[in-house]
Design a binder for these strands. Structure first.
Lengths: 331, 331
DNA sequence: TTTTCCCCCGCAAACGTTTTCGCAATCAAT
DNA sequence: ATTGATTGCGAAAACGTTTGCGGGGGAAAA
């Protein structure tokens, strides 16, 4: 049980005051080069590690970011978290990861936890699309920066980093047109969530330019539903010559149907999706052509924003991460 | 900037001492029912939230578990973390999640971080299969319980929770025999890692009972490699009538080859794998028959062990999570 | 010589708790 | 009435830092 060594230990050992040790360790200009050297050396030798709790108590700050997501078991949030973790580590920060399970109550509780732990900042993808910002504002009043990402509140006065949802849909539509697809099954997510609405609108608009193409719009709340939708569509008299899947989850359902019906891709039909990572699209043969909206990249962006905020750039901004087409062989 | 209210605020308000307030709040027997009530009520009213840093400084404890995994972007660790998070929340604990990237140096640094943050306990899946336990022991000397899970050190004097690796392989072998498979391609992971060795040994042993079956053993370090191995095997003159995949990663590679070669499952060939979750096996049509070794369940088990430890059961134990066969339609 | 200035450094308070010790009051037992 | 135990509470130290203020000493300016 090697007792933790403290500033006091060092000061006693060197016959100088605690304050001098403290200042020396953090390069305060008041301290002479000579004593600074001395202190530094001894601290290293004694394996001194500052007590983060004492520091936080004194300064009312911490080296922890809170990060709240609907669920951690999700590729997208996953890669987001990884990215933030990588960057945070570089500046000596740790992550307090909390999942809200899409429940506003749990979310509120998590925010409370962040307050309790005096986190230095919060990154959050909101659960409910509530317009009630009060629970978030409490944090900012205490000087805690809060960055919304992906699923963000529908108000202007906050910091957001988002994916280019419309843009991704447009890119997909363009790719389909370029291939001359004429009979397209487009499967979107649950009609109520905002991301579905955005992508659907943008997709349909972009498709308008191609008057003669036949468009079938469908909504799937789960992988299972998109499986059924796809199956039905391809069992009909006239098969689509392309499928657009709004998300990874939908893509997996569609692909199961493809396997069941032994449909040849891309000869019988083309596939294109919007995906968060390369994982799902690379699972199939041929590999799926997709529009990437990277959680990882978004994480990097969010970290950048929170760093900027903490170093003084406290104005509100919305950052958008561009998406890009990744060519597979499925279209 | 609503200043945080403290014990002092409450005490002043009630004209009693800080110590009394502190004791009242935590139900100390010294305090009369009457004042306890009073204090409780006012605390609730004033929305009092204890300062965790002050508490930790004073008690040298925290309400945080450290959890160190090779990578967080991995289904298995993922579900493990989810399970631990769920349970921890119930007892008011948070999680400090760190990834080592399989680098012993980073791992050491992460362990240091756990010490720095005075975590109440550590759950770790070790990076290197090093037998050097010193860096871990330092924690236990400080009274911090450390539970190893999944990838554990090869020594007895520590707490472990593991998957039934041998068991899973035996179950798979048995299932293959029951179906009367005679020409089996078995793909394992990288030959150096311990889990590969365990599973391979158990699998081969279990297969011995079926003398006339032809067994092809292969090793794949990645999804790509298992793709190549499978392709080659099925392009040969005599095709296997079943494939056994040791892990999800290997399964994905094999399934890509199946799609490429348009092999009919289970008519042309049967598939069975060992998987951490239902996610990957359910991605295909037909769904894959697999042996489940659940990260989620393992997380629950690990939490149970660390709770027990903290409540006094400090002896060393190794817990094994049984695995079970989940029937799909691929065999 | 005196004054002014700057360079280094120490004192002590403060952050919000927990906990040891002790004290006064009450009550039961002798 | 004296002792002894018990009950309910307060004073104060401690946890390890940071930081405002002030002071001693030496050098430069007067």
């Amino acid at each position: 049980m090697s007792a933790k060594i403290t500033l006091k230990d060092i000061s006693r050992n060197l016959n100088i005051s605690i304050s001098t040790v403290s200042r020396a360790l953090k390069g305060h200009p008041d301290i002479s080069e000579e004593t600074r050297e001395k202190v530094m050396r001894l601290a290293a030798l004694m394996d001194y590690e500052p007590n983060t709790y004492a520091i936080s108590l004194r300064t009312n700050k911490s080296n922890i970011f809170g990060i709240i997501v609907p669920e951690i078991s999700n590729f997208f949030y996953h890669s987001f978290i990884s990215a933030v973790e990588e960057e945070s580590k570089k500046i000596g920060f740790s992550l307090l990861i909390l999942q809200s399970g899409n429940d506003p109550l749990v979310e509120a509780e998590n925010i409370r936890l962040c307050r309790l732990n005096r986190v230095a900042g919060v990154l959050i993808s909101v659960a409910a699309s509530s317009k009630d910002m009060s629970r978030y504002q409490k944090l900012e009043e205490n000087g805690v920066p809060i960055i919304f990402f992906d699923k963000v509140p529908d108000v202007d006065a906050c910091n957001k980093v988002c994916l280019a949802d419309e843009d991704a849909a447009v890119l997909a539509a363009t790719a389909l047109q370029k291939k001359g697809k004429q009979h397209i099954l487009a499967i979107f997510g649950h009609p109520d969530i905002s991301i579905t609405q955005k992508r659907k609108l943008a997709f349909i608009n972009a498709m308008e330019k191609n008057k003669q193409a036949k468009l079938i719009i469908a909504h799937a709340g789960s992988s299972r539903e998109s499986f059924e939708i796809t199956k039905t569509a391809f069992l009909a008299s006239q098969q689509p010559d392309a499928v657009f899947c709004m998300s990874d989850e939908i893509l997996t359902g569609t692909m199961k149907a493809m396997q069941l019906l032994k449909i040849n891709i891309p000869n019988d039909t083309g596939i294109i999706s919007i995906s968060n990572d390369d994982f799902i699209p690379h699972l199939y043969e041929p590999e799926i052509t997709y529009i990437e909206t990277s959680g990882y990249q978004l994480g990097k962006l969010a970290f950048e924003r929170i760093s900027d905020y903490m170093s003084g750039k406290k104005f509100y901004r919305e950052l958008i991460l561009p998406s890009k087409l990744v060519e597979g062989n499925s279209l």
